[in-house]
Amino acid sequence: MKLSTFYGHSVACGFPSSADDHKEAALSLDDHLITRPASTYIVRANDDSMVNVGIHNGDLLVVDRSLTPKHGDVVVVALDGQLTCKILGRRRGGLISANDKYAHIPIWEGQELIVEGVVKASVRYHRGE
């Protein structure tokens, strides 16, 4: 990924704060988002079932296959050959949506569930051009 200029100060999202022009270093998003390139892929989110964990329709998901999935992780799974992004649930015994409009998906005996990876991060475009 191309390097971009990284400023060493943060940006207030509430009231404005004094800004400085201190450029800290060049920054590659790969260094922050992709720890293991050989096991990482990027996929686009396709609906609003995960909005309450900050994943919106059209976001890019950074998915790492090398991570061991834990209950409560956001994962990409193949359930009977169909891909979906959900929360891996323990208490409800299935795949949990992060939007009350969508029911959770129970996992029944005999179904094939393959965890394709753990979602490490998401990237959202705020202005498409």
Rank of each mutant, 00 (worst) to 15 (best):
S28I: 08
S49E: 01
L33H: 07
L60T: 00
L61Q: 01
R124G: 14
D47K: 00
R90S: 10
A78F: 02
D47I: 00
P69V: 11
A78W: 01
K120L: 14
G128N: 13
H9L: 12
I55G: 01
G14C: 11
H32L: 15
H71W: 08
A121N: 12
A45V: 01
S122H: 15
L67A: 03
G110S: 11
R124P: 10
I42H: 06
Y125K: 13
M50G: 01
P106E: 04
S49N: 02
Q82A: 06
N52T: 03
Q111T: 08
I96V: 15
Y125L: 15
N57M: 02
G72P: 00
A19V: 08
L60P: 00
E116F: 08
V62I: 08
R90D: 08
V119K: 08
L3I: 07
E129H: 08
K2A: 05
R90G: 02
V53Y: 01
M50Q: 02
A121P: 01
D59F: 01
G93Y: 06
S4G: 07
P69I: 09
N52D: 08
A19D: 13
R44F: 00
D64N: 04
Y125F: 13
A25L: 09
D20A: 14
R124E: 15
H71M: 03
N99L: 14
L33I: 06
T5G: 09
L33K: 05
V53W: 00
D80N: 05
D100M: 13
V75S: 02
L83N: 03
K23Q: 13
T84A: 07
L27D: 05
V119I: 12
S122C: 15
S97C: 14
Y125G: 10
D21H: 11
I105K: 04
V51L: 04
R127I: 15
I87E: 04
K2R: 07
S17P: 01
I114Y: 05
R91V: 14
G89I: 11
Q111P: 05
S28W: 03
I87G: 03
S4K: 09
L95G: 09
G93D: 07
D30P: 04
G72F: 03
P16H: 13
H22R: 12
V75F: 00
V119S: 06
R124C: 13
R91W: 09
N57C: 07
R36H: 13
G128S: 13
I34G: 10
D20K: 13
T84R: 03
A38L: 11
V43E: 10
T68P: 00
F6C: 12
L67Q: 08
S17C: 14
F6N: 09
